[in-house]
Design a protein around this nucleic acid. Structure first.
Lengths: 255, 255
DNA sequence: AATAGCCAACTGGTCAGACCAGTTTGTGGA
DNA sequence: TCCACAAACTGGTCTGACCAGTTGGCTATT
């Protein structure tokens, strides 16, 4: 009777998978090269390749000759750009608010868990992301905003939560990319959003779980209400991207 | 612009897979050794190993040190739940609790929304599902349980929520199929679960949103705690159906 | 100065041969 | 008869080499 005894190859594949799901590697992101992984993990390149093939078989990564291996979108139905879900938005803009409704819960939970579980490293990352958020010209891009939220979600140390929220966020990005761009320019709103971010940041860093949840939920709800307000004024809130031709997404590139 | 150009490794893995699925290799059957495959297919053993790892990642085969690789008995067309996330649970049981953690939130929200938004038709469906739940022998299957929860989630009228919860539930079904089967037989637990279901049902039907949320969350948390309790007693909580149980020795070929 | 083109340095893909580590099997001796 | 042990399998890992796409920078030309 043999016991678990999984070989190094298996272990490596699990470690990599864990790494990915813990948020260390986000979907679309490029993985280290095989040679790097080999030396860094102290195994031969053959082992790395076998582990990568296993992940590839599972659809966790996809590999391109000469370029590298990239983390695939993991939560399939939620994260897939051409999933049936995406088509919902076309006909029913209301779905955006459904989405925000769900996000309200999950962002709240993420903040709560982050307040409870954030490690030193997490706190450092969150702080850095928050500072970037403060210093950035709000009229520019929404990247720092995402970075901040992402840092908090990852500090929840719940891979399921990380990926579900990631999927939801991706959908938001594609559909309502205009949201932040619409909200930020208005000075009064910007002010409020900044204040909310500060509240979230402080609550999480102070370890005040209940408070963190509350302010994070309030933040999402605020965005939700604001969008509703804009929409009632005739603004174009929903933007359905009609690019059905995304074969291979290449990440990281665009600025 | 690159075309499909899949490498030899991929091609081999596809050829082997097709071979298996075409009936050339029956489930449980032993595959040729790596060295045999290598020479017979005219490639190096490394390639064979990579291809096998890919199939392994897909759950098509499983490999045992010193013995060989065996075709897993999977139902090819019925089993579309080879979602990458599934494979996590094999090595990371903690992920189950992460999942329940998220479900706690979402089930709570679903119950709350259902209490607020359920239409006549929804109420009818929920009631029918609840009655089926009461009348069914709890020792049988978990189907009625799913039906009940499903009816409530759908009554939330939030397609995103339905979708996400559906995904999470699918994962649970495949991994912890044993959970309900483990929990139900114990009379005390069954009692509690039935009571919780009743509370949820009544709260939703009465339109008591806050209360519905509360009891629904409590229900999930109860399941979570119970599983944890069982696990601490040494019970096998996690069961990975994909490729764990094929030691299925082939009964001495007799033709 | 702008650009076409090329080359070096990445990346993954494949190969060969060696050795380690479990499993099975058959043969020998007790 | 039965047990022990040694081939002879099996997969697992390592090494180092070379092939093949991709990319980015540098050069030479315009």
């Amino acid at each position: 009777m043999q016991v678990k005894t999984m070989g190094i190859s298996q272990e490596i594949s699990f470690r990599l998978e864990r790494l990915i799901l813990d948020g260390g590697l986000a979907p679309g992101q490029k993985m280290p090269s095989e040679r790097q992984l080999a030396t860094r993990l102290g195994v031969s390149r053959a082992i790395i390749r076998e582990a990568l093939h296993e992940l590839q078989g599972r659809g966790v990564i996809n590999t391109q000759h000469g370029r590298g291996s990239f983390v695939a979108n993991i939560v399939p139905s939620t994260n897939d750009d051409n999933s049936p879900l995406m088509h919902l938005f076309a006909g029913h803009p209301r779905t955006l608010y459904d989405l925000l409704e769900v996000r309200e819960q999950l962002e709240g939970q993420a903040a709560e868990l982050a307040a409870q579980r954030a490690t030193h490293g997490d706190r450092h990352r969150i702080t850095k992301a928050y500072q970037a958020l403060e210093e950035t010209d709000p009229l520019s891009n929404a990247r720092p905003d995402h970075g901040f939220h992402q840092a908090i979600v990852e500090a929840s140390h719940n891979p399921i939560l990380v990926h579900v929220l990631n999927g939801l966020k991706n959908m938001m990005l594609l559909t309502v990319h205009a949201s932040v761009a619409n909200l930020n320019p208005r000075a009064d709103m910007r002010e409020l959003i900044m204040k909310q971010h500060k509240q979230i940041y402080q609550a999480v860093m102070a370890g005040k779980a209940a408070s963190a949840r509350k302010v994070a939920m309030a933040h999402v709800r605020f965005v939700q209400d604001s969008l509703r307000g804009l929409e009632s004024q005739g603004a174009e809130v929903i933007r359905v991207p009609l690019f059905s031709d995304n074969f291979h997404e290449n990440p990281t590139k665009r600025y």
